[in-house]
Nucleic acid binder design. Structure first.
Lengths: 342, 342
DNA sequence: CATGCAAATGGTAGCGCTACCATCTCGGGC
DNA sequence: GCCCGAGATGGTAGCGCTACCATTTGCATG
């Protein structure tokens, strides 16, 4: 009449099995695993031996239920394929790989509503921390973040009013710097070409516009944008549109490097000399920018570092150390190359 | 002397609160949420009203603990930034966005040991399904997959001996097709340039080699590889190496499109005519291949579909329908473009 | 009219872990 | 020698949910 080992669990060893084998209480095993310092050397050794022998792995679900806190970082990004976010995510993964924290990524597809939905889903798990891209949450998404009951890091941008913490840089300044560089290099009819036009792209456009207005050279016809997702192909097409609209164009600030590459290829194809006839500046500084012919000037952003820094801040907040600096500006760097070397 | 609402839980509504409000048993609420068909129309309405009013969201951790099954898809990929895997992951996300399943991605960094470790971690959660890239698991990783107790889909490649299910294509055939195309186009001294050289790259190389040997044109000096991660910059450097080693080179099959782009740029820089002096074939067919100047011939792979198909198979296995076809070959498509149009 | 059976609902007993609160031991201070 | 507090360990009682096994009801069947 022995009770079967377990009604449902797949018969995997539990903390009670380890405790029995090590001759201690279950709670001591739990402590030995989570706060080794609070268990004596002797027992710790016995427990480790029992764990190894049984191949015990704690059940994260039971752990989360009992402690009302899951060892999960929730990460919300607008795109998985955009290299920019992929780099941030990679930074997050690398920083968390030696920690007990798991990572759960949500893809918002650049939609505020989808972001709300995912925040709801993520929140139901009581994550240890949340990392979200951008600062333009809907009011209700913002409320969810404020009530998440865990550290929150907004990444990619800086802004005046963080939910909790922030790591990023000023896209406005990035756009302005790019435009000013073209102006200094002697270009005058400088276009802006942008796809997707999410809030960050909008702010880069605003920075470009500020620089152009300051130089007395802004003209609405210089701006060519589309809500369509960015691609190299699209860069080529938009550049053609821009040129059709404004044949005297002598420079372009591209919303991102894919667009810039598309512009460069179209210049090759149409035998437009870069940088003599057209100067090109990209944004993000992907690897290929330095190899292309001619190499392309771009605004380098520190995407991987944004990820690692965000994790570092969240981790220290979890440990109880609120950071002295809630807003971290990692800046950017203008990489001058052949494409603007007139 | 009223007991406090709860010792730990943040005071969020539980299934018992909903049951009380709706005047039914907790189990009926649980059923109404998971198998609505088994609860009468009337109660379902009452329950839905109570859920909405209280803002009840089920706790996935409690659910996982009680049912010994987490609504999680574990996904293991070797890289997060490599566009190839990002596309697969995007397909997985899109296919799962309307389901209750969450996704947990693990980054193996092309390491079998890391894959084992992540499998151990993922397994401890009792995931609903596992999707892993590649077919070259270590013996112990393979054992973990076999004992995972859930559907397993190996993606990116096909092979003779699936753990459970497989979706992908033959990299060997892809490599052979690329080389044969160059041969047919009249190129003779066709090099292979590859970075990273993971098992899939090795098989593409093997396919290339088979085609070259069949034509009696294989020469070990035609092959230039490195274990270093792939990049456009690296493509340029490897091409220079290849050319230094074999100045009469008249074609290259590049392990991937980044390398191919690097080769193209170096050709521009060194005034090597493409396709007259050198023919170039890439692999994967990223968007930029069709826009570059000249456009680059590439082997198109169906990465997004691999992701969606893997999810579809896993979902149907979860529903109890073992697929008639355990190995799905999605093939590839040679996209002929200017870079091989001699 | 008893019987059987399916459909609808509920009670009980955990799932595997940890928070909370003992209990016990030991050494130092008086 | 006694008291006290710190450190180490353990027992109990859940966390919020669902598997399992009733129980109830309604209705077709013989």
């Amino acid at each position: 009449m022995t009770k079967p080992r377990s009604r449902r669990g797949g018969g995997r060893p539990t903390i009670a099995d380890v405790a029995r084998k090590a001759g201690v209480g279950a709670i001591t095993v739990s402590r030995a695993l989570r706060e080794p310092g609070r268990v004596s050397e002797d027992l710790r050794r016995q427990i480790r031996a029992a764990v190894d022998e049984l191949g015990y792995v704690p059940d994260p679900n039971a752990r989360a239920l009992a402690s009302a806190r899951a060892e999960v970082f929730g990460v919300l990004v607008p795109s998985l394929t955009n290299n920019v976010f992929a780099e941030v995510v990679r930074g997050i993964y690398d920083s968390l790989s030696d920690s007990p924290f798991r990572i759960q990524i949500g893809n918002t597809h650049y939609s505020g509503l989808e972001e709300e939905r995912l925040l709801q889903v993520f929140g139901s798990q009581r994550p240890a921390a949340l990392i979200v891209a951008g600062i333009d949450q809907t009011p209700s998404a913002r409320r969810l973040l404020e009530n998440a009951g865990c550290p929150v890091v907004q990444v990619m941008e800086t802004g005046p009013d963080p939910v909790d913490m922030m790591v990023g840089f000023s896209h406005f300044d990035g756009g302005r710097t790019a435009a000013e560089h073209l102006l200094q290099a002697g270009y005058r009819k400088i276009g802006f070409i942008g796809a997707r036009m999410d809030p960050r792209s909008q702010r880069r456009l605003a920075g470009y516009r500020a620089a152009m207005e300051a130089a007395g050279l802004f003209d609405a016809r210089l701006v060519t944008t589309t809500p369509v997702p960015s691609s190299v192909t699209l860069g080529r097409e938009l550049f053609r549109d821009a040129l059709a609209k404004m044949p005297t164009l002598d420079g372009v600030f591209c919303n991102n490097d894919d667009i810039a590459l598309g512009v460069l290829f179209e210049c090759h194809r149409a035998s437009i000399d870069v940088p003599k006839q057209i100067g090109i500046v990209g944004f993000n500084d992907l690897d290929m920018m330095q190899v292309s012919f001619p190499s392309i000037t771009s605004v380098r952003t520190h995407r991987y570092e944004i990820g690692t820094r965000a994790v570092a801040m969240a981790l220290s907040a979890i440990a109880g150390n609120r950071p002295e600096q809630r807003i971290v500006d990692l800046g950017f760097e203008l990489m001058r190359r052949e494409s603007t070397g007139r």
